[in-house]
């Protein structure tokens, strides 16, 4: 069944397409969308896709997400496409692109890193030093975070 038939068309907002199947909830989580914001959010999982076989799609009505907000989902959905919809038409389409820095979202694996200390005024932050395979380096302690570690951490969410 086509996703068009599953989810109503939106007049204005953002469609995040080509999310690897099963990752839509992680995408919402990374975006910090909980549903309590008030705007309409719909999501389809495991729909047929020519490019990916199966994919997930997230649609956010009434909000145009900026690249900055959306790019961090590249950690779990590097294939995603961002479509900005105005008046029912796609007016802008861009690929997500992993930013050079990642703040929050994942933790440092070094137990002696200050970002793992409870109750301190600090959030984990990383510099991206390789995209394929993904490799991050902690800006506080210099420890590496590998792709497998990132996926493992986000799988638990």
């Amino acid at each position: 069944m086509s996703e068009e038939l599953v989810v109503r068309r939106i007049s204005n907002g953002t469609v995040i397409d080509h999310i690897p199947a099963g990752r839509a909830l992680k995408v919402l989580r990374i975006l910090g969308i909980t549903g309590e914001e008030g705007y309409m959010v719909s999501m389809v999982m495991n729909v047929y896709s020519k490019k990916l076989g199966k994919k997930d799609i997230v649609k956010v009505e009434g909000r145009e997400l900026s690249s900055e907000e959306v790019n961090k989902i590249a950690l779990v959905a590097p294939t995603a496409t961002i479509n900005i919809v105005r008046d029912y038409e796609v007016v802008e389409k861009r690929k997500v692109e992993l930013p050079d820095r990642i703040e929050g979202i994942v933790r440092c694996v070094n137990p002696k890193c200050v970002t793992n200390a409870p109750r301190e005024a600090v959030h984990p932050s990383f510099r991206v030093i390789s995209r394929k395979p993904l490799k991050l380096v902690c800006e506080y302690c210099g420890e590496y975070l590998t792709e497998e570690e990132v996926i493992a951490q986000l799988a638990g969410t």
Partner: peptide, 23 residues
């Protein structure tokens, strides 16, 4: 003893921070 403690201190303090060994 924690790694990155001096960087955190530098973010919080106006005064300059000198790292005398962290982690």
């Amino acid at each position: 003893s924690l790694e990155g403690a001096a960087k955190l201190a530098a973010e919080l303090a106006e005064a300059p921070v000198i790292n005398a060994g962290d982690g």
